Computed example of a mutant assay.
Amino acid sequence: MFGFADIIKFLISFFVILPIVTLIHLSGHIFFVTLFGGLEKKIVIGCGTKVFSFWNIEIRKYYFWNGACEFKSLRHDNRFTNTLIYLGGSLFNLTSIFLVNALISQGILDTSVFWYQFVYFSFYILFLSLFPMYFSDGSPSDGKAAVLTLKNQHEKKISDDIQFMKMEEQNKTKERSRDRFSGD
């Protein structure tokens, strides 16, 4: 039966563990972006209005719902590097699952509901990101983007949680900002 203690476990899982798992996933993408010379990198946790940021991490009002990472260019930009960027989040989730299980089996971490939920949500994010599909907004999952990239059919360098801004888009954004502040 679902009781009060289960509600507390659910709230902790949803508001603490899921954002941690999301951060690990996005860190995997950013790791490979950094490895391949990406510039102006940022991790966005959640959606809605910006609450605060530190380093290159931005926390949004609904921090427990989704996330994204952004970057502007890559020094090493080819099908192989792009595929690793798309799969990087899942690789980090998979690594965290194995790491937690290894630490529990070695007796370093205690078996607990927290770690069970951590592994559960890690598998959840891992599965949904690798499942080759398009989301309702038209963006591909990481798995679909990786497949399209390997087939040389993916040009936008975006997925459900990766945003790549081309230099032309950056310049247009800067020009709009200048126009807005100059009173034109």
Rank of each mutant, 00 (worst) to 15 (best):
T95P: 01
Y120M: 01
I20Q: 02
E40S: 14
I12Y: 01
K172H: 10
N101Y: 08
S177D: 15
L128R: 06
D6S: 15
F71D: 08
G143L: 05
F31N: 02
F127S: 01
C69K: 00
G67S: 00
T34H: 10
P140R: 12
L126E: 01
V119W: 00
I43Y: 01
S96F: 09
L11H: 09
S96D: 02
V21Y: 00
T95W: 12
N82P: 02
S139T: 15
L128A: 03
F123T: 00
Q163K: 12
I43W: 00
E40F: 10
S27G: 13
F10W: 14
G88V: 11
A68S: 15
I158T: 15
L94K: 03
A146H: 05
F80K: 12
L84T: 07
L35Q: 08
V100C: 02
V100W: 01
F2P: 06
Y62Q: 03
V44W: 02
G88Y: 08
K61F: 10
D161A: 01
M133S: 14
D179W: 11
K157I: 12
V51H: 08
I59M: 04
L23V: 09
T81A: 03
I20S: 03
Y63D: 03
A5V: 10
K72S: 07
K174C: 04
G88C: 11
N152C: 13
E168M: 08
T34V: 05
L11P: 10
G3R: 06
E155T: 14
F98T: 12
F32Q: 00
N66G: 10
I158D: 06
N171Y: 12
I158Y: 11
H154I: 04
A5S: 14
E169P: 02
G3Y: 06
Y124L: 15
V100G: 03
F181G: 11
F164L: 06
Q117S: 04
L128M: 12
N101W: 02
S141L: 07
D160T: 09
I30C: 06
I162G: 00
L130I: 04
S129I: 01
S90P: 04
S96M: 10
N56K: 14
S182W: 06
T95C: 12
F15W: 04
T111R: 14
N101Q: 09
K157T: 07
G138C: 09
F15Q: 01
F31I: 07
L103M: 12
S27C: 13
F181L: 15
G183W: 08
G46Y: 01
F123L: 11
K151S: 15
M165N: 15
N66P: 04
D142N: 12
W55H: 08
L23K: 05
M1L: 11
I59T: 03
K41D: 04
S177P: 07
H154G: 04
F121M: 07
L148D: 11
W55T: 12
S112N: 09
K156R: 15
